[in-house]
Amino acid sequence: MPLKIEGLSKKFKDRPILQDINLQVEDGEFLCIVGPSGCGKTTLLRIIAGLEKPTTGRILADGRPIKGPGADRGFVFQQYTLFPWRTVLENVTFGLELKELEKDEREKIAIDYLKLVGLEDFKDAYPYELSGGMKQRVAIVRALANNPRFLLMDEPFAALDIQTRNLLQRELLYIWDKTNETIIFVTHNVDEAVFLADRIVVLSARPGRILKIFKVEIDRIRDRLSKEFLTLRGEILKILEKEVKLR
């Protein structure tokens, strides 16, 4: 199993954030994690990335326990995190530069990825010259250029307007299809999760526990107004609503 989370819990000081998380992620899977705000879903993703340490339990990536952040787990943040002093191309080559690839080679790889999101013409632009949607496209491509084993995404489209968000969801599915990445995608937006995921993990209010895992078996590209889509979305929303009331 490529990613295995075993008995994981997390406390900040004495406050429990996550409780007894057990989860397995399959190769090439698109997994979404949803939950009410403050439920620890971002923390869970950060622990997988190695940016935080679990209080108990462990995570195995291809059988090896995760000790810290690494290039094998690409991360796309909710905030804009492009390096403002680097052009689009230099941002995308950042990881390859760390691996000490030759300049020609890393630029070739970067351009190929930029083509994937239609931004090759913006390679010499600085991040401040890009729109929010473009910045997040570059951030995704920057993570992908490292050819990571897992792509971890923390509400990457939350700051975008609804049209851009829908467009980027489609683009992400296209990228996923082309690259066969394994994606773990955190969102509070149930609609987004149902549109994207193979499986949806629903977390409880804090401390986050896994309430239910849904398998989504609707053909892509999914119609947001189809009966199956709305039924599943309604079911998940009902669970979450109960959670929010409980607090």
Partner: peptide, 24 residues
Amino acid sequence: VLIEAACTLGATEGQVLIKVVLPA
């Protein structure tokens, strides 16, 4: 978050210092 982004792209502490902290 810029430092964290660099770490998830595989940067060591030294690389973070030279390639992120200095220019930033």
